[in-house]
Design a protein around this nucleic acid. Sequence first.
DNA 1: GGTGCTGTTTGATGGTTGTCAAACAGTTTC
DNA 2: GAAACTGTTTGACAACCATCAAACAGCACC
Lengths: 122, 122
Amino acid sequence: METEKGSRNDPLVDGDPGGEQLPQPEVADIELVKVLQALGDPVRLWLLKVYADGDQYSCRPGALGLDHLHKSTVSHHMRILRESGVTSTRVVGRNRYVRLRREDLDARFPGLLDALIGALPY
Amino acid sequence: METEKGSRNDPLVDGDPGGEQLPQPEVADIELVKVLQALGDPVRLWLLKVYADGDQYSCRPGALGLDHLHKSTVSHHMRILRESGVTSTRVVGRNRYVRLRREDLDARFPGLLDALIGALPY
DNA sequence: GGTGCTGTTTGATGGTTGTCAAACAGTTTC
DNA sequence: GAAACTGTTTGACAACCATCAAACAGCACC
């Protein structure tokens, strides 16, 4: 089949990237202690910076500035971020479209995400 | 010797409680990842609430609402909070005068502490 | 359709952590 | 000075965690 909804080189658009959403907690079920636990790690704090700068279509270590880590390790970190409620992931082809859950986090913990992003050492 | 600088039943005053300050990081050396690591634990997140409500003159588990924990465990948590830069501790007699480092944290990570306290589930 | 790419899962491993118990050090009080 | 109290330190132990490697699954592209 030909590519009907856009090839991988298409520019990032605002709309729905399509694909199936990976399991994640409801807004009301996001727990502060789990968010802090998720972000209390150098690698995942780095990923917060990456996703604060924009959505990503790839989880490749190289694409995320994590070339020193094995891809299974990165996958592990992505899962923790998603299951804690920090990020949202959609399966698009063989890639994963990952974004920060800004509105959900702002609704649940007002001001927290902005303060965290502003406090990043990068 | 008689009590010359106030007995343990004196009311809490705003001024210097006296005593020697336990080692803690300089403001500029407070690291975000260590603060998040420190607060990414149910017990220490509870202690954040306790100290957000006011300074404490005791580290006894019962005085902190941690009756289910051994005193050495509480001491361990207090150390992590202090060494991460969240709290400040002074030795006063046989007690410890512990307080939140509000101004230091506000200076280093503007808005973070308020957002965290506002997000507490207690 | 086969090859290559992206990402997940499982297992193994070394390091970290939360907890308790016991011993210890200062301090207060009698 | 002895007894009681507060808190620290050390050791032990189970649970958890970050990491890698290998195997696997789904998709893309030729």
